[in-house]
Amino acid sequence: MSDNIILQTKGLGISFGGLHAVRDVDFVLRGGELRCLIGPNGAGKTTFFRLLSGQHTPTRGEIIYKGKPLGNLQPYQIARLGIGVKTQVPSLFEGLSVFENLELAANQTFSGLEAVSIVDETLERISLQDQRHTICQELAHGQRQWVELGQILASKPDVALLDEPAAGMTHDESLKTIEIIKEITAKSSVVVVEHDMDFIKLIGERVTVFDRGEVIADGTFKEIASNPQVREAYLGRKEAAVA
């Protein structure tokens, strides 16, 4: 692993019929890094995540994790290697309690009392101690997002892929979500996909911009905000909000 690279893609691509959803993406994530991915709707961000987590099989290129190609591993095998995913739409065990949801995540890495203690710790971090026995389908949207982030915290993956963790949240909830993401970053390398430019600005880390399946820019928030290609592809429509 040169330069502390934990996850890398080389010429990664996938086509659905004639549509190139992701094309020739070279991406590098280093140990302990927090990276944001932005791009307009249909830019290929979620598809890129699905490729990294094994939910889609690439038609071109390769994914290298900890120096080894992932090949055509199943999603559960990739998860066991240490890549955790928070999906775009909260994907929980709806009929199970918050505790059970987190326990299932912790059990994958830890066992017995250690797993229970990690779940308790996670409940505190996501501020859902009082809802530990609440069934997930009864939670508010923001709380559901936190439970899924809690699953990432509890399973302590080496790489966490977070797809729109603050979608549909209030400003205060978003601030709490940033706190949780920072906690995840303390143990894992993190990639965050988000539409909300204010949220990206608050995270304040390196940003990679996707458009039409390709990486069109990479840099600090300031750099990408002043990039004409990015402004045309994405920020043009959000300029007022960013300013």
Partner: peptide, 24 residues
């Protein structure tokens, strides 16, 4: 047991179980 809990988890959300590393 751990296996039984996974059985129920898969009923609830197969995809999530897989993304947590369980062999569905």
């Amino acid at each position: 047991t751990r296996y039984g809990k996974v059985t129920v988890a898969i009923r609830e959300n197969e995809r999530r179980a897989e993304l947590l590393g369980y062999n569905v």
